[in-house]
């Protein structure tokens, strides 16, 4: 087996206060390995607003600006403008928001920043619900999920919002999905995004959440990999909103991904068939946009 090609440098230090097995912590670790120290991080209300740590446990080696929940895109725009005026145009400004702060309350702020083509990198680490407040549904929560605000038989019966298509519709210069289970692919995409200076860029990072999903913490990475291998979370890139590149193609039924998770335990075989149909449909649409089979990047499955 070939060793992982991942930079040695660490910008995420010991002392973060994420839950055991937190996928969002792994995501930040790889993100900063890719981006390097010349990075300013803007974090709205989200798990990472807490994970970054209380003094003296601040866990990042780069400057952090905590922003109001609704405003990651706007706050990052202001940081960018000031850094440019101060002669620091090369510094990467990374907005780092959860799915609530991206898909829901922060969507207009993100949309505004992208439409203005701000020179920022916006990253959504997606754990598919409001985990910091104790697992309430977001518009990123997938069909079939139980959360504390979609309890019992009221499990979520609407689909996960397709944030990548939302961004593609803005004709954003670069948008890509990435997964903590595929660190080399993720680091490549973060570097590509970093080097595409002068434009708005968006990365959608799948960050599994053992606490909110009802799985043992040792399954964090495995679940992220299963999400890719079942086409629940395909890895792909979109340039200028029109040029699609698929990085992966799934080879497993969705059941393999759904069945280990407590949040899906109530689903009947028929419900799972419904989800399989939705995933297949989304995959066909994506495949049609890419106009061809996946161009397999250097992935380790």
């Amino acid at each position: 087996m070939r060793p992982l090609q991942v930079p040695e440098e660490e910008y995420l230090r010991r002392g973060h206060v994420g839950c055991a097995g937190c996928g969002a912590v792994i995501a930040m670790r790889f993100a900063l390995k890719a981006l390097g120290p010349d990075t300013v991080v803007v974090i709205p209300a989200c798990c990472w607003g807490v994970i970054a740590g209380a003094y003296p446990q601040s866990s990042l080696d780069v400057p952090i600006l905590h922003a109001a929940f609704a405003t990651a895109g706007a706050t990052a725009s202001g940081v960018r403008a000031a850094l440019d005026m101060r002669g620091e145009p090369d510094t990467t400004v990374m907005a780092w928001a959860g799915d609530g702060g991206t898909f829901d309350i922060g969507l207009q702020s993100l949309s505004g920043a992208v439409e203005r083509d701000e020179d920022i990198l916006y990253v959504c680490y997606d754990n598919e619900a409001y985990m910091n407040t104790g697992v309430q549904r977001s518009s990123s929560t997938p069909y079939g999920t139980r959360t504390t605000t979609t309890p019992r038989e009221g499990w979520k019966r609407t689909r996960k919002k397709n944030i990548m298509e939302t961004l593609a519709a803005h004709r954003i210069a670069y948008a890509a999905t990435a997964s903590i289970a595929y660190p080399e692919d993720m680091i490549r995409k973060f570097r590509k995004a970093r080097d595409l200076k002068g434009h708005a860029r968006f990365l959608h990072v799948f960050a599994s959440c053992p606490t909110g999903w009802g799985v043992p913490s040792e399954l964090t990475v495995k679940l992220a990999r299963l999400a890719v291998r079942t086409n629940v979370f395909p890895l792909y890139e979109v340039e200028n909103g029109v040029s699609y590149t698929l990085n992966t193609e799934g080879d497993l039924p969705v059941r393999a991904y759904l069945s280990p998770q407590g949040r899906f335990r109530h689903l009947s075989p028929e419900d799972i068939q419904d989800i399989q149909r939705m995933v297949d449909e989304d995959w066909r649409l994506l495949r049609a946009k890419a106009q061809g089979p996946p161009q397999r990047a250097r992935l380790m499955a």
């Binding site: 407040t133 104790g134 309430q136 504390t148 605000t149 979609t150 309890p151 019992r152 009221g154």
Partner: peptide
Amino acid sequence: TEVAERIAE
């Protein structure tokens, strides 16, 4: 949040 959670149920 617990107000909404109770109400959701």
